[in-house]
Write a protein that binds this DNA or RNA. Structure first.
Length: 652
DNA sequence: AAAAAAC
């Protein structure tokens, strides 16, 4: 009855890297109400004692819907739609029905009325509750999400609070997402010994920076040429961005490292200092993965690097650790003391990611590494008040991690100066070169120090990045891991050919299981709809897509990470980079249009060598298109005709 | 055509 309960045993150790958020505090046993909630919070608590720690008490006093939700799940509830369990689960929505006619403005007004304007400290937590979990609020959000005026509603929801929160809200977010940061913030800003002279740029000049010819460039001009002549397996194409145009670009010629080449090699052997090595160990990374072994020394040399390692192969540390090490060495070389915050110090490294969640996740990995040598990081991304971000920048930050929009925004506001950026990392670099991302990224890169080091990483790095490489990189070293073909993958792929009208029920049937399941939808609307449908079918699920406000996005992802919920329905916002431990099934409710998307979505499972399964749903008349896509992805799958009620759906 | 990314 109660679906998606966790197996009592809890899960196996999660080592591996990025999502600190993912690993730390998963509690094993089923969630049975407040107490388990609390332990669930520990993980979050470790990151933000305040936020999670508060939860239980607050929850009880305010009767947060979640608790009752969980209790219900624990008790098992009727899976029948007629019983509207989903409604029960989300009491807010219905309870708040009366509120439905109330304009948002009222909510807003309320908020203001309620929150003592002056007492920030008290207010923040309170507000937080309201925003993220109080019934009232949840109701409001829900309403927005479902109502036709949702779009406007969201905008209002996000914007309204922001206005008056600007000065204090930032902190809240911090608490929510990462504790360490707070410490940093609390460290008193040190004396301003800032002496970042332009000189430093030169001092930082990378040895070997100019010695091109070390390796024939894989890019110019042939690559540019290749870029313009994107080709498919079937036929050459000359037009870019044709709708539905999914093409395979040339793979980069790369130096390949073999897995056994890293046997017995430690991070210290790669040139990382002791503090960094210790920090990595603290993150669960005891010894380097191949892509890390391949790229870390080269990054430390100061070269531009293109790194290609399949999903879940440890790319974050591959660029994060050497970036920190380099900044630290630079610092030491210029006689600066580490560990002291210098007001107004400009950032020296920039890490760009395509989504906020990914930026956050990268920071969770990089921040502890940076902290180990006294460097500060900050996240700069949209959807949250900028006040805290700006505050951090003013206090001095060494590494900025964020998404393009807000970064450009702050640059234009004159609050972020990239002129001293010596290392820029583009995670999911090929995606950052897609339409819509490329130009902002280019503008941002142009703001960084001339000739500064650039690192481009992606599981699907191809010549699509030529636009950036041509302009910004010098004689890049290209590295990949040998033998990373699908045959060696730990992911099992299946394709079910279904009747479109059964899709939602089939998804529900597949998702009704033990273990974490990530479901992809092509549109936000369908993701939302599916999540609701799943709940109606008795499968506890949350959604993640761009129509949600950031608080909800963060929270819903966190719910999957923490194991509070086992099913997440997402758009492609979650396709790339997001690491959640132990997702053992990925369902593509809508097949992707691009083979790269297929690879990235699939890559949310089977991470760090674990087993994973991917089920892609398609319809009869889309079979061919999907099979071509799979061909480009070099994945061989037998298509299976599946009907609702088939055993394969329940016994996957 | 959709998704993401600023306010």
């Amino acid at each position: 009855m109660s679906k998606n309960r966790k197996p009592a045993g809890g899960r196996v150790a999660r080592d591996f890297d990025p999502a600190r958020g993912g690993s730390g505090g998963r509690r094993g046993p089923g969630r049975t109400g407040a107490s388990s909630q609390k332990s669930g919070s520990q993980k979050a608590g470790s990151r933000s004692p305040k936020h999670r720690g508060y939860r239980p008490e607050d929850a009880e006093s305010t009767k947060a819907p979640r608790w009752s939700r969980d209790e219900r799940v624990a008790k098992g509830r009727s899976p029948h739609r007629a019983d509207r369990p989903g409604r029960d689960e989300r009491p807010n929505r219905d309870d708040r029905a009366g509120r439905y006619d109330r304009p948002n403005r009222d909510d807003r007004a309320n908020r203001d009325d309620r929150a003592g304007r002056y007492d920030r400290d008290e207010r923040a937590p309170r507000r937080f509750d309201r925003d993220e979990r109080a019934p009232r609020n949840e109701g409001r959000y829900s309403r927005d999400e479902r109502s036709p005026r949702g779009e406007r509603g969201h905008g209002r929801d996000e914007r309204a609070p922001r206005r008056d929160r600007d000065e204090r809200a930032p902190r809240r977010f911090e608490r929510d997402e990462r504790a360490p940061r707070r410490d940093r913030d609390e460290r008193a800003p040190r004396r301003d010994r800032d002496e970042r002279a332009p000189r430093r740029d030169r001092e930082f000049d990378r040895p070997g920076f100019r010695d091109s010819g070390r390796r024939p460039s894989t890019f110019f001009p042939e690559q540019r040429h290749a870029n313009e002549q994107r080709r498919t397996h079937e036929q050459p194409r000359t037009q870019r961005f044709e709708p539905g145009d999914d093409v395979v670009l040339d793979r980069l010629q790369a130096e390949a490292i073999t897995a056994d080449a890293v046997d017995g090699v430690g991070f210290a052997d790669l040139g990382l200092g002791r503090n960094v090595v210790d920090a990595l160990a603290g993150l669960g990374a005891a010894t380097p993965f191949p892509i890390q072994a391949a790229t870390i020394p080269v990054v430390l040399e100061g070269r531009d690097v293109l790194g290609r390692g399949r999903t879940g192969s440890g790319k974050t540390i591959a660029f994060g650790a050497p970036t920190v090490e380099r900044l630290m060495q630079d610092w030491a070389a210029t006689g600066k003391a580490g560990g002291k915050r210098q007001v107004g110090r400009k950032p020296r490294a920039l890490i760009l990611a395509p989504t906020r969640e990914l930026a956050l996740q990268i920071d969770r990995t990089v921040q502890p590494i940076a902290q180990s040598v006294g460097l500060f990081t900050t996240q700069i991304y949209g959807g949250v008040p900028q006040g805290r971000q700006v505050g951090a920048l003013q206090r001095g930050v060494d590494i900025v991690i964020g998404t393009p929009g807000r970064i450009e925004d702050l640059i234009e506001q004159g609050r972020l100066d990239l002129s001293e950026i010596r290392i820029t990392v583009l995670d999911e670099a090929d995606h950052m070169c897609d339409l819509g991302f490329l130009e902002p990224v280019q503008r941002i890169l142009r703001r960084t120090a001339e000739g500064s080091q650039k690192l481009l990483f992606s599981a699907t790095l191809d010549t699509g990045v030529a636009a950036l490489v041509d302009e910004f990189l010098v004689d890049p070293a290209v590295h990949e891991v040998a033998g990373e073909d699908q045959a060696s993958s730990t992911i099992e792929h299946r394709v079910f050919v279904i009747d479109n009208r059964d899709k939602r029920d089939i998804v529900a049937s597949l998702a009704d299981r033990n273990g974490k399941t990530l479901i992809f939808s092509r549109t936000r609307a369908f993701a939302e709809e599916l999540a609701l449908h799943l709940e109606d079918a008795g499968v506890f699920a949350v959604a993640l897509h761009g129509d949600l406000n950031q608080a909800k996005r963060t929270r819903n992802l966190q719910q999957l990470t923490s194991g509070r919920v086992d099913v997440l329905v997402a758009t492609d916002v979650a396709a790339r980079g997001i690491h959640v431990d132990d997702i053992d099934l990925v369902i593509q409710a809508d097949a992707p249009d691009e083979y790269k998307t297929y690879l990235h979505r699939s890559g949310r499972t089977g991470r760090a060598g674990r087993e994973g399964r991917v089920v892609t749903l398609t319809t009869r008349h889309r079979q061919r298109r999907l099979s071509e896509l799979l061909g480009r992805a070099e994945i061989e799958v037998e298509f299976e005709d599946v009907r609702l009620g088939d055993e394969v759906l329940s016994n996957l």
